[in-house]
Amino acid sequence: MFCRRARSFISLALDGALPADRTITLTRHLEGCARCREYQTDLQLGRRLLATSAPALADGFEWRLQLRLNRTLQEAARAAASAWDAPPAGAGRWLRGAGLAAVGGLALAAAVGLFLLPGEWSVPAPREPGVPGALVERNAPQEPAPASAPQIAIVEAPATVTSTAGDPTRTSVSGQSRTTWFGREGTGRAVDLRLSGAPDPRGLLERQGWSGGSLEDLRSIATLRDQNRRLRDALAQAQREVILLRAQSDTARGGLAADAGGQREAPQTR
C-alpha cells in the first residue's frame, strides 16, 4: 500500500468511517511505516489543539443578541406598516402624470367647447369660497359600499378649480381617499381615487395587541404584507383604468377637432 492511500485511510479512521477490512490493511501498513505513524499522531494532536483552543465569546453576548432580536422584529413590523402606507416607488408620480394627461385632454376639449359651443361644455359646479382650504368642489357620485377585498375606485366628475397657485395638479390625502384635481382655475375635472375594503393597519395592530417581539407579531406582519400586495394589485388596476380614460379623452378631442373643422368649412361650401 502506498503512503498516500494510507493517509487517506488514516483520515477516515480518525472519523470512524474506515471499513473493517481496510482497517486491517492500514494497521499492517502502519506497523512498517514510521512516517505514516507520525502522520497519524499529528492528526490526533491537531484535533486536540483545535478542541482546546476554542475562542471564548465576549461578555454580554446574550444581551446583545436580545437587543438585536428585538430590533429585527420591530424593524420588520415597521417595514410592513410603512409599505402599506406608501405607494410603490414612482407609481404615484406615474399615476398623477397619466391622470393629468387624461383629464387635461378633457379640460382642453371643454375649453374649446366653451368657445365654440356655449352651453354644451360648461362646467356647472358652483364656487364656495367660504370653505377654508377647499380648492375645488366636486359633483362626484356617492362613494361605493366597501367590498370585502380592498379596491381603488376611480371617480371622475366635473369640477371647478378655485385656486391652483400656478400648479395644474393638486393632490390631497385624507383618510383612505387620495384625490387629484386637474385643470386651470375656474374649470376642470376631478379624478378621485377612493380606497375601500382595506382595514387600517394601525387598527389591525391594536386589535391583535402589538408587542413588537413575538412570532405572533410576525404573523401580523405577514397579514399586513398580504393586504399590501392586494392593494398594489388594486392600484395597478386603477392605473390601467387611467390609461383607458386617456384613450377616451384622445378620442373625444379628435372628434371635437373634426367638428370644429366642419363648422369652419361650412360657410365656404355655402
Binding site: E62, W63, Q66, N70, S214, E216
Partner: peptide, 12 residues
C-alpha cells in the same frame, strides 16, 4: 403566543 418586550431578558 404572546411575549412582551419586558420578557426579553437574557437567560442567566
Amino acid at each position: 403566543m404572546r411575549v412582551s418586550l419586558s420578557e426579553f431578558r437574557p437567560p442567566r
